[in-house]
Design a protein around this nucleic acid. Sequence first.
DNA 1: GGTCGCACTTGATCTGTGTCAAAGCCCGGA
DNA 2: TCCGGGCTTTGACACAGATCAAGTGCGACC
Lengths: 248, 248
Amino acid sequence: MLQDHQTLLQHDCGDCAIRHRAVCARCDTDELLRLEQMKYYRSYQAGQTIVWVGDRMDFVASVVTGIATLTQTLEDGRRQMVGLLLPSDFVGRPGRATAAYDVTATTDVLMCCFRKRPFEDMMARTPHIAQRLLEMTLDELDAAREWMLLLGRKTAREKIASLIAIIARRDASLNLRRAAGALAVDLPLTREEMADYLGLTLETVSRQISALKRDGVIRLDGKRSITIPDFDRLLEEAGDDADGGLPV
Amino acid sequence: MLQDHQTLLQHDCGDCAIRHRAVCARCDTDELLRLEQMKYYRSYQAGQTIVWVGDRMDFVASVVTGIATLTQTLEDGRRQMVGLLLPSDFVGRPGRATAAYDVTATTDVLMCCFRKRPFEDMMARTPHIAQRLLEMTLDELDAAREWMLLLGRKTAREKIASLIAIIARRDASLNLRRAAGALAVDLPLTREEMADYLGLTLETVSRQISALKRDGVIRLDGKRSITIPDFDRLLEEAGDDADGGLPV
DNA sequence: GGTCGCACTTGATCTGTGTCAAAGCCCGGA
DNA sequence: TCCGGGCTTTGACACAGATCAAGTGCGACC
């Protein structure tokens, strides 16, 4: 019953060995119960816009299942994705009244929500929540900076390889779907969404995926599902140093 | 005597009308005094590297005077700036042992430092610090996302205009150097640093600055100092919507 | 089973920015 | 005063990726 938002409260307290699974019963029971009473759910269909820039935001939430994106748009329609929300990611900013980005459901999405005001009050009372939120925000900031390097300095081929590596890594850490040697990943994004992630056009995305396939770096099973025969080879193509992904 | 790190502890408590100047005496006196005892200074010369990626980080700090940058580098030397640290900005990540980025002093820099361990302990005891740090980190995340839009989707000309607008805005909010109509700004960065900020080459930066000058969007007084006759015109060139800068 | 529509691929061409190279400017030191 | 070196500007050219335009494949719906 606590599963949906436990990532919000978890913290390193020494008692909880497995950080991403356990919630420390000793310290957080009261807060957990209070939070439990506050939560409610919202679900959205694939393609649906969850909030528009400038909308009044009266809630904060975390993604339970599905994938959502944060995007920014220039007046003439150029779009850049600035956040990719996977299960357990947090949406919304305590202390801000209106949304700064468009939030869109890429697949069907279930969110676990908390009304903003009581959540903020609670944050003021229970230091663990602010500390946990700080930790999550710092992780996001690191991811954003890695992303900036990608956008500013990588070639189209490196961008595609990086994106596949990022998805594979986040995916693998959730699902442990690592077969012997080869790794199966499915891309939860359309070519256009990948383009918006990478600062490219969809044509370029398509061409570079074809090129990586031609060169044996990836194999395609259908259009959205790929296998990676050699992950290190992929990382090499991504141009990163050593382990080349989001610092975690 | 408290001036150097007061931004770290300030918060909205109702008593302090002017957020960026006042520290609420009622709530924070003890913490301020403890923090005061812990602080020490380091200074760096222009061009000097403050920390290298992977270095052990035994302190956190905030910039008192001068400008520093965070950069990431690919193996073949391509560089991308991922953070620009102006006075009052925070450096270092509580809970992380090694630096994730190169930190370099662009001008002479004075930093107000705290040893990491005691700072972390203090953070655990005094919720205000974590909350304040969260607020600052969320601001940085917003800035990073604006930056991602710039890197992924703006043209070279728009990038330059945006950078000038960003510097002018941060500068103006600190110094209130807004003359009637025209606005004088000096660029604290070399052409190469601007290029690293914007994901361009220094030649392109130079060409676009010349173009903006030719078109009357900016005027140059020497190489590093510009005046902006019409700020709205500049924002238009930057391609942003409405007020087009870092959301604050 | 056919056909409609949408996501994707592929091709031809165009263009903005990178690359390479040279020259100018300015400041500091001898 | 002149010289040297770093920062900057400018030019000529190359090329990665954008743009425009067909075409393909595949699932949904009749």
